[in-house]
């Protein structure tokens, strides 16, 4: 009899815990979206921002800057990440070197982003004199997302059936051709999952970017010609969406609808990326 009661209590505890998890999520999402969505108008998404009190409060520059950081970081990190994963799964013999590399990626994924921010500030901003700029931020983010890309790509490469590889090797293809022409394309959806997870991390990142891309870069890319505008912007400061949310929430100069609408935009982006990663990873598990 006592056992039954104990079971009931513990069972209730388990159900309540699971309910708390869901309720907290719904609470956060509901509160932000309820207060933010009405203000997330088309003009909010497509106009520029000015810090003055009555200026335009759109977030187009932040969206563009976020895209910049995403693209530059991915250009830097994806080749390195895929290369590492290929080395770890296809070339390396299991031994000390591999376990050191694994340990290093684990350590990297455990370092909090504020420390990446400090490191990026010390090295890219000060030592290399790249100043507060999108390139400094992207170099910092490159290190942040490297472990994610390596791990997911590695898993995807390992999931490719060994028979494919053996078959290709048996008909005389070289190792490089087997890897690049056979195994990597087979693992593509897994690789893409990793890239999307990395994009999610960049979109939400604040602490690592706070002292590397600068928080006052609200300008649109501009220059003498399109080349200057496109590439020159990489050397300029660039406030991203998440940073903008932090700023406008903390400084209190913007009307309160601005952080809410920015948070909604961020949430929608994250939700979309999350679903995309889910769909892709399910496809590659098949």
């Amino acid at each position: 009899m006592r056992n039954k009661k104990k079971d009931m209590v513990l069972g209730a505890f388990i159900w309540i815990s699971a309910a708390i998890t869901v309720v907290v999520l719904v609470g956060i999402l509901g509160y932000i979206l309820y207060n933010g969505l009405p203000h997330m108008t088309w003009s909010f998404l497509t106009t520029t921002y000015s810090a003055s009190k009555n200026g335009s409060k759109g977030i187009l520059p932040m969206i563009i800057n976020t895209l910049y950081v995403i693209i530059v970081s991915l250009v830097l990190a994806v080749p390195i990440g895929i290369g590492s994963a290929i080395y770890l799964t296809q070339y390396a013999k299991q031994g000390r070197l591999v376990s050191i590399i694994r340990f290093a990626t684990e350590v990297l994924s455990g370092i909090p982003s504020i420390l990446f921010g400090l490191f990026g500030y010390a090295v890219f901003v000060v030592l290399f004199q790249l100043k507060l700029s999108i390139i400094s931020g992207s170099l910092t983010m490159m290190i942040c997302i490297l472990p994610t890309i390596i791990r997911t790509t590695e898993e995807a490469l390992l999931a490719v059936p060994g028979a494919y590889k053996e078959g290709a090797l048996a008909i005389g293809a070289g190792k490089l051709r087997v890897t690049m022409g056979m195994i990597l394309p087979c693992a593509m959806s897994g690789v893409l999952t990793g890239i999307i997870l990395a994009i999610g991390r960049i979109v939400g990142e604040t602490a690592a970017l706070l002292f590397t891309v600068g928080v006052s870069g609200n300008a649109m890319p501009k220059g003498k010609n399109i080349f200057d505008a496109l590439f020159g912007h990489i050397l300029e400061q660039g406030n991203t969406l998440a940073l903008h949310l932090y700023n406008s929430a903390m400084n209190g100069k913007d009307p309160v609808s601005v952080p809410f609408a920015t948070a909604s935009a961020l949430l929608i982006m994250v939700f979309f990326l999350n679903r995309l990663a889910g769909i892709l990873s399910r496809r590659f598990k098949k």
Binding site: V203, A242, Y246, L266, V270, L273, N274
Partner: peptide, 8 residues
């Protein structure tokens, strides 16, 4: 819950 950015 894991994907929500910390700033949110």
């Amino acid at each position: 819950l894991a994907g929500i950015p910390s700033v949110i």
